[in-house]
Design a protein around this nucleic acid. Structure first.
Length: 626
RNA sequence: GGGUCCGUUGCACAGCUUGGAUAGUGCGGACGCUUGCGGAGCGUCAGGUCGUGGGUUCGAGUCCCCCCGGAUCCGCCA
C-alpha cells in the first residue's frame, strides 16, 4: 500500500544504514508519525543509544541527523535533531501528496495485510429471541459488525455468525404467557412482534412470578418440553422464536449489519454433540466427577484459581455452560459438523444468509469454522468465557485460538431511568428486560431519523420526501453506531435519551457533514480532476496536513485490526474530518488559478474517497447532502 | 471475602499495549467569525495535584506494588 507508510519505510531503511555505519546497530527503535509541531516522523533511537555510547541523547541525535543529510531529497526534505533528543523528519509535501492522492483513488484504499488471508469466525448479536433489541444489544451488534468490516479490510477471510438461544428459560417465560396466561399471539396493529413480546408478554409474565410462585414450576416443565422437542410446546416455541428473530433481524439490517449464518441453540442441543464432547473431556482429564462435598454427584470443571463449575448436575442433565462448549468447539472445527444448511428467506443487500438445520437436504455443505474465533459478549460473562477459552486451548492443542471480545455494558442515566419510571437516587442504572427497564433500539432510531430529517429539511428545503427520508435513515443510523463505538470497549456507556443523541461535536453527523461540504466544492468547481497534477503547489500547512491525514488510513486499520478496537477507526474518521474542516475554513479552493484549482480538487476528492472508505469500516454512509 | 475492569479539567472521553519533547478532544462556560466553497462549521480565552502513597528508570499519565473509591462477576439459573 502506497501511503504515509512509504515515508516511514524510506526513513527506516536509510536510518538503518546510518546506524550501521556508526556502529550502533541492533536497537529496536520506534519510528512514528510525529506529534503536532515536531515535523512529520519522529525517531527515539538517540534515547536508546545513549547508555551504550555514554553520550547525551541530543548529541547522538545530532550525529544521526547530520549523517542522514545525504539521504535528504527523496520523500524527506529535512532532518532535525531536537534538543530533547528526538530525531525529527520533515516530508517533501509535493512528492508525498502525489503518492497519497493517486493511491487514495483506488477502491480498496486503506487495505492492509494483517490477516494474510486467514479464515476467522466472528460471532456477535446473539440476542435471546423473546424480546426486541435494546440499546445494550446495539453495542454488541455494532461492535461486532465493525470488527468484521475491519478484519476484512485487514485481509482476513471473515465468517459472521449470529447465535440464537431459542431454548432457554426466557423463551419458556413468554411461552408461559401465551399458553397459560392467554396472551394473544398477535400484537396490536402497528406494533412489531418483538416489541410486543418484550414489552408486554415477557414483562407481564415475569411480574406474576412473585405473586404466583406455582407458575415457576410450570415454566420449568415447559423448558423441559422445549428442549426435548416434538411436543406442542416445542412447536409453538420454534414458531414464536422464529417470528421474534425475523423482527430482530429487521432491526439489525436497519443498522446496516448482515450475517453469513444463523445458529440455533435448540439444534446444538439436539445434535448430540454434547455426549461426544463429554467423553473427550473425560478422556483428557479436563473434568472430574465429585463423589463428595457440595458438588457431590456432579461432573465439574476445574477453573484456574476459581471455584469449580458444575457441568453435569447430579440428576445427569447438562447445565447451560455445557451447551456453550459444543458450540465453541464447532466454531473452531474441533468436531464433525452435524448440520445441514438452508437459505434464510431474506437479508438486506441481497447477501445470502444461511441457517443451520438438522433436517437432511441436498444443498451443499458449508463450513463456518476457523482456527481463530472471536466471540463478542458482554464483560459480565467474562468468567464463563474464560472457562471456555481455557478449555478450547487444551482441546485445540495450541492450534486453535478462541477469543472472547469483551465490552462493558450500556447503562441508563438517572434521568432516562426516571423517565422509564425508576427512581435511582441520581445514579445510573443497569437495564433489565425482565423489569421493562430498557431503551428500545428501533425507537431510538426513529427519534434520530426524525431529528436528522428536520435538520436536513431546514438546510435543503428543495429535497423530495423520498430523498430526505433516505438521508435521515443514513444519518440516524450513523449517529447511533458512532455513539456505540467511539469509546473504548472497556468503558461503560451511560446512555441518556437526550444527551446521547447530539448531532454536533464529536459525532457522526459532524464527520458526514465534512464529506458533504467537500462534495459541494467539487460540484461547484465544474471540473473533472486530472490526477496528473502539479502536487508541488500543495505547500500550505492546511493542505499538507490533510494529505498526511489521508495517508494514514492503513495505519489506523492495522492498529484497529491488531487490537480488535473499532474506536481506532472512529477516532481516525473524526480527526480526518477535523483536518478537512480546518482546510475548508482557511484555504479557498474555487478562487484558485487553474493548476492550483485542479490540484486542490484532486485533494478534496482524495479526502472524500478516503473518508468514505474509513467510514465504511464502521458501517457509516456518506450522503452527498444532508 | 476472592476475580476482572474503571478512576485524566464542572461533565464525557483520547493518550497507557511499544516510558521520553508543549497531557489532547467534545459537551458545558466567556468572547468573536457568514454581501465569501453549506455555521451540523471555524477561531480566541478560562478550566488539569493524570484517585492516594511507594518502587523501577537519566526520565512515569504510560511499567511494578500497596491502598482508596466505583462497576461487575462468583447457583446442581440461562
Amino acid at each position: 500500500m502506497m501511503s504515509f507508510r512509504v515515508l516511514l519505510d524510506e526513513i527506516r531503511k536509510n536510518l538503518l544504514s546510518v546506524l550501521e555505519k556508526e556502529g550502533i546497530a541492533g536497537l529496536t527503535f520506534s519510528l512514528e508519525p510525529a506529534k503536532e509541531g515536531f515535523g512529520d516522523v519522529s525517531c527515539n533511537v538517540a534515547f536508546l543509544a545513549a547508555k551504550q555510547l555514554k553520550k547525551r541523547p541530543n548529541e547522538i541525535a545530532q550525529l544521526i541527523s547530520s549523517q542522514y543529510e545525504k539521504f535528504v531529497g527523496g520523500l524527506v526534505s529535512k532532518v532535525e535533531a531536537h534538543p530533547s533528543g528526538y530525531v525529527n523528519f520533515y516530508a517533501d509535501n509535493g512528492n508525498l501528496a502525489k503518492i497519497i492522492i493517486v493511491e487514495s483513488q483506488k477502491d480498496d484504499y486503506g487495505k492492509t495485510d494483517v490477516g494474510k488471508g486467514a479464515k476467522i469466525t466472528v460471532e456477535h448479536t446473539s440476542v435471546n429471541p423473546n424480546k426486541a433489541l435494546h440499546i445494550g444489544h446495539v453495542r454488541n451488534v455494532v461492535v461486532g459488525d465493525s470488527i468484521v468490516r475491519i478484519l476484512r479490510k485487514a485481509n482476513y477471510s471473515v465468517q459472521t455468525l449470529n447465535y440464537v438461544d431459542d431454548s432457554g428459560l426466557q423463551v419458556a417465560d413468554i411461552l408461559l404467557g401465551f399458553r397459560i396466561l392467554g396472551f394473544s399471539q398477535d400484537p396490536p396493529a402497528g406494533q412489531k412482534f418483538d416489541h410486543y413480546c418484550g414489552d408486554e408478554v415477557y414483562v407481564k409474565t415475569t411480574e406474576k412470578y412473585t405473586t404466583n410462585p406455582e407458575l415457576q414450576e410450570k415454566r420449568n416443565t415447559m423448558l423441559k418440553e422445549i428442549e426435548d422437542g416434538n411436543s406442542e410446546t416445542a412447536k409453538l416455541a420454534s414458531e414464536i422464536t422464529a417470528r421474534v428473530l425475523a423482527e430482530q433481524l429487521k432491526t439489525c439490517w436497519r443498522l446496516g449489519v448482515s450475517y453469513d449464518c444463523l445458529n440455533f441453540e435448540s439444534e446444538i442441543v439436539r445434535s448430540h454433540l454434547w455426549p461426544q464432547i463429554f467423553e473427550r473431556l473425560k478422556q483428557m482429564n479436563l473434568i472430574k466427577f465429585e463423589s463428595d462435598g457440595k458438588n457431590k454427584g456432579c461432573w465439574v470443571i476445574m477453573a484456574e484459581g476459581e471455584e469449580d463449575k458444575v457441568l453435569v448436575r447430579s440428576n445427569g442433565t447438562a447445565t447451560y455452560i455445557a451447551k456453550d462448549i459444543p458450540y465453541a468447539a464447532w466454531k473452531l472445527g474441533l468436531v464433525e459438523d452435524p448440520f445441514y444448511y438452508k437459505e434464510y428467506p431474506s437479508q438486506q443487500n441481497n447477501k445470502t444468509l444461511y441457517q443451520t438445520t438438522l433436517v437432511r437436504n441436498n444443498s451443499p455443505k458449508k463450513n463456518y469454522s476457523s482456527d481463530k474465533v472471536i466471540t463478542v459478549i458482554d464483560s459480565r460473562q467474562a468468567r464463563l468465557q474464560n472457562i471456555i477459552t481455557d478449555l478450547m486451548n487444551k482441546f485445540g492443542q495450541g492450534k486453535k485460538e478462541y477469543i472472547h471480545l469483551s465490552y462493558e455494558s450500556v447503562t441508563l442515566s438517572s434521568d432516562t431511568a426516571n423517565s422509564l419510571g425508576m427512581e435511582t437516587g441520581g445514579k445510573s442504572a443497569q437495564m433489565s428486560g425482565r423489569k421493562g427497564l430498557y431503551v428500545n433500539a428501533d425507537k431510538i432510531l426513529d427519534t434520530l431519523e426524525q431529528k436528522t430529517s428536520d435538520e436536513t429539511r431546514k438546510r435543503n428545503p428543495e429535497l423530495s420526501d423520498d430523498v430526505l427520508q433516505q438521508i435521515a435513515r443514513n444519518v440516524g443510523v450513523a449517529t447511533l453506531r458512532y455513539e456505540m463505538i467511539k469509546q473504548d470497549l472497556d468503558k461503560i456507556i451511560t446512555f441518556d435519551t437526550t444527551k446521547s443523541l447530539s448531532l454536533e461535536g464529536d459525532t457522526a453527523p459532524y464527520i458526514q457533514y465534512a464529506y458533504a461540504r467537500a462534495g459541494r466544492i467539487i460540484e461547484k468547481s465544474n471540473i473533472t480532476p486530472n490526477f496528473d497534477a502539479n502536487y508541488d503547489l500543495l505547500q500550505d500547512n492546511y493542505e499538507a496536513a490533510l494529505v498526511k491525514a489521508i495517508g494514514k488510513l492503513d495505519l489506523a486499520v492495522q492498529d484497529a485490526a491488531n487490537n480488535l478496537s473499532p474506536k481506532v477507526i472512529a477516532k481516525y474518521c473524526y480527526s480526518l474530518a477535523v483536518t478537512f474542516n480546518a482546510f475548508y475554513e482557511h484555504v479557498r479552493v474555487l478562487d484558485a488559478t487553474p493548476d492550483m484549482l485542479n490540484a486542490r480538487i484532486c485533494l478534496v476528492q482524495s479526502f472524500q474517497k478516503c473518508l468514505q472508505n474509513a467510514l465504511d469500516l464502521i458501517g457509516i454512509g456518506t450522503p452527498a447532502r444532508m
